[in-house]
């Protein structure tokens, strides 16, 4: 068995007195894509914040290629090759489109992604490269956010609610682009509220409810009933 690229071992997470995650176990193999689904407040975003280093955790609760990273800061985690596409896109408003992408690439990790290949993936961004990022539509902003994360040539990319607030046609085009992104040996964790979208692009799926894993299985074999049970806690 090869070592998983990412493993969570009884991960707990707290906001002050409030506990958001309770003993979450999870493992992701190299090149695998997993989806995490769950209702609002289930702990999905907290999980991604923990992995990416925006929240501090006990060191060995999060391992990356066997190495404990729970206590690392976000910039140290990023340097290891983990990138996050944050919820709500969170572009830098005082940077242009191109600058947003360039700052994503400042770690200069080797790999296929650079300004050229991101523009090939999302040609509209090349036309608007000099625009302030705030002047773009929501879908275009999401493309910048994805491109920005790719620019660091991560080995593991985390997507947080990339379809939230976007028109269906935009969501479709972004999801159509996903296989081309993660197909190149990149592992991915996709957090998504749209369950069918999440299942369609992932190898395996985890469902979270109230900070605990309630379901785990291959994306093409979990049943609707099992998901609704795990999602809402009802039969």
């Amino acid at each position: 068995m090869p070592e998983p690229i990412l493993s969570l071992n009884a991960l707990d997470a707290h906001y002050g007195d409030f506990q958001a995650l309770y003993g979450v176990d999870m493992a992701l193999d190299d090149g695998e894509v997993i989806a995490i689904i769950g209702a609002n407040g289930a702990g999905k975003t907290t999980l991604l914040r923990s992995v990416s280093g925006l929240m501090s955790n006990a060191a060995d609760q999060i391992r990356y290629r066997g190495q404990p990273i729970g206590m690392l800061r976000a910039d140290e985690v990023a340097a290891l090759g983990i990138a996050l596409v944050p919820e709500g896109r969170q572009l830098f408003p005082s940077l242009s489109v191109e600058e947003n992408l360039l700052i994503g690439g400042r770690l200069k990790r080797p790999g296929p992604w650079n300004l050229r290949s991101v523009f090939e993936l999302f040609p509209v961004l090349e036309e608007r490269r000099a625009y302030p990022s705030t002047a773009l539509s929501g879908g275009q902003q999401q493309m910048v956010a994805i491109g920005r994360a790719l620019m660091s040539n991560p080995d593991l990319i985390l997507f947080d609610e990339i379809s939230l607030g976007l028109a269906p046609v935009i969501i479709k085009s972004i999801y159509d682009a996903l296989p081309g992104i993660v197909g190149e040996g990149m592992s991915a964790v996709i957090v998504e509220q749209d369950i069918s979208k999440a299942l369609s692009v992932s190898d395996r799926v985890y469902c979270l409810m109230e900070g605990r894993v309630t379901l785990e299985g291959a994306s093409n074999s979990v049943s609707r009933d099992a998901i609704s049970h795990a999602y809402f806690g009802i039969d």
Binding site: L54, R73, A74, A78, A79, L84, F92, S94, I103, R106
Partner: peptide, 24 residues
């Protein structure tokens, strides 16, 4: 310059800038 870009990024959003590998 890249330095100025980093200044503006950190000024805009410290958390997200950290995700870019910037140590604020």
């Amino acid at each position: 310059t890249p330095l100025g870009r980093s200044f503006r990024a950190v000024s805009d959003n410290q958390d997200i800038a950290q995700l870019m590998g910037l140590n604020k």
